[in-house]
């Protein structure tokens, strides 16, 4: 597992049934592009988050493929429907096989 990887998401705590909510997500990750060289001139191998998925109660909101052109500490903002109370699941997939996830519940107000 790459060191110091920490996800962060911002989801409203409540919404009205049927609302569309804005969600922001960020994960601390170097996103080593595979284009850089170290001091000895050797290419530093690529090591990135290559996929980011978001589901609400098991149904897909967003499935994003990331390439090395995504900046360090990948940030993604998008919108989701909230037809009912439930839980968002955010999952990041690392080149090294690690999977990071976090969940956020949302209530109907």
């Amino acid at each position: 597992m790459a060191s110091g990887v920490k996800p962060r998401v911002k989801v409203p705590k409540t919404a009205a049934a049927g609302d569309v909510v804005t969600i922001k997500s960020l994960i601390s990750h170097k996103m080593e592009s595979g284009q850089r060289k170290d001091k000895e001139g050797n290419t530093i191998p690529r090591s990135i988050i290559n996929r980011f998925t978001v589901e609400f109660n098991g149904e897909s909101v967003l499935d994003m493929t990331m390439e090395p052109a995504i900046s360090t500490n990948p940030y993604v903002q998008f919108e989701a429907k909230v037809p009912e109370a439930g839980e968002f699941t955010f999952t990041w997939y690392d080149d090294d096989g690690s999977v990071y996830d976090t969940k956020k519940a949302i209530a109907i107000a």
């Binding site: 569309v20 909510v21 804005t22 592009s33 284009q35 589901e55 609400f56 149904e59 897909s60 909101v61 967003l62 499935d63 994003m64 493929t65 990331m66 390439e67 090395p68 052109a69 995504i70 900046s71 990948p74 940030y75 993604v76 903002q77 998008f78 919108e79 989701a80 429907k81």
Partner: peptide, 28 residues
């Protein structure tokens, strides 16, 4: 990004629960 060493940046696939077919991110 057509001028990058490799042009791929991202692909957003929107599911049935997407609130819009829109997204923001930060790129190199």
């Amino acid at each position: 990004a057509t001028g990058n060493p490799t042009p791929g940046v991202a692909q957003f696939n929107f599911g049935p629960m997407a609130g819009s077919q829109a997204a923001s991110t930060r790129i190199r």
